[in-house]
């Protein structure tokens, strides 16, 4: 038994190394003074970060991405609350089908979503902008928001709400005063995950943003120029650090939410 466990453990650790290989390399190249992304490393520099900081297009792209990600996160979470509440609290004919349809973007190739939406928007004559990107991002963030929020809503003790009704609260005030605070960790976690997905989403932004840059489309356009790549590595390092912070926060809130409702601590973001 012990031997078998050891072997599996070694394999699992190797697998983690495989998963983390790109992330470990990223900062090495970001602080490397050589202009070519290859070993051996040259010397230490923070020049690429300075270059990144001074880049005006990058700043526009960042602003656009932040506007898109914040809007998409809020809208997807709001819509997600409706769906999660409906699916965990009420029974009605056709529920499975409707929920399945809302969750469909999770498995649909993004290129299909992006292309079909593009064709319709151009057909109707809507001008492409960051607004059209937000439309697409809300659609693809919503299933993830619902997955997280459903967990939060389903571990909710219904008798607490009923107690509130008995104490004279209306349906809305009971929701606001009892349910909402209890699922708040789930909501924060959903906002963070949606924000992260939107910030990193490339395909939809690539097709629907018109001539507005977002962070991923800017990165994609720069990967063609070898001279720009060290700066992109610096940008990547910052982004990775940022996502790790956001995800750790999200995980913290998810666990706290679970602990508050006495749930078990396992389960991931998906």
């Amino acid at each position: 038994m012990k031997g078998q466990g050891r072997g599996l453990q070694a394999y699992a650790l190797l697998y983690l190394l495989f998963l983390y290989a790109p992330i470990i390399l990223l900062p090495l190249f970001a602080f490397n003074s050589g202009t070519i992304i290859a070993f051996p490393l040259q010397g230490f520099t923070t020049g690429w970060f300075a270059q990144m900081w001074a880049n005006a297009t990058l700043r526009t792209a960042l602003t656009n991405s932040l506007i898109i990600a914040v809007s998409a996160a809020i809208l997807a979470t709001c819509l997600g609350i409706f769906a999660a509440r409906a699916s965990t609290r009420f029974e009605f004919p056709g529920k499975g089908g409707m929920m399945g349809f809302i969750l469909l973007p999770m498995v649909l190739p993004e290129i299909i979503v992006a292309m079909s939406l593009l064709v319709v928007l151009l057909g109707v004559g809507v001008e492409l902008s960051i607004l059209t990107v937000i439309l697409g991002h809300v659609l693809i963030c919503m299933p993830y928001a619902i997955a997280i929020l459903s967990t939060a809503f389903s571990s909710l003790d219904r008798s607490l709400e009923e107690a509130a009704y008995d104490l004279g609260e209306t349906r809305w005030s009971a929701f606001r005063l009892v349910t909402l605070p209890l699922v708040m960790p789930g909501i924060i976690s959903s906002l963070l995950i949606s924000f992260t997905i939107s910030l990193d989403e490339f395909i939809i932004a690539f097709f629907l943003a018109g001539n507005q840059p977002t962070l991923p489309t800017y990165i994609f356009s720069q990967l063609r120029f070898p001279k720009q790549i060290p700066m992109i590595m610096a940008l990547g390092t910052v982004l990775v650090a940022l996502s790790i912070v956001l995800l750790t926060l999200g995980e913290y809130f998810r666990r706290r939410g679970n602990a508050r409702m006495g749930g078990n601590p396992t389960g991931g973001f998906l």
Partner: peptide
């Protein structure tokens, strides 16, 4: 790692 920039 799944949540860090896909392109990069």
């Amino acid at each position: 790692p799944f949540w860090t920039s896909y392109l990069i």
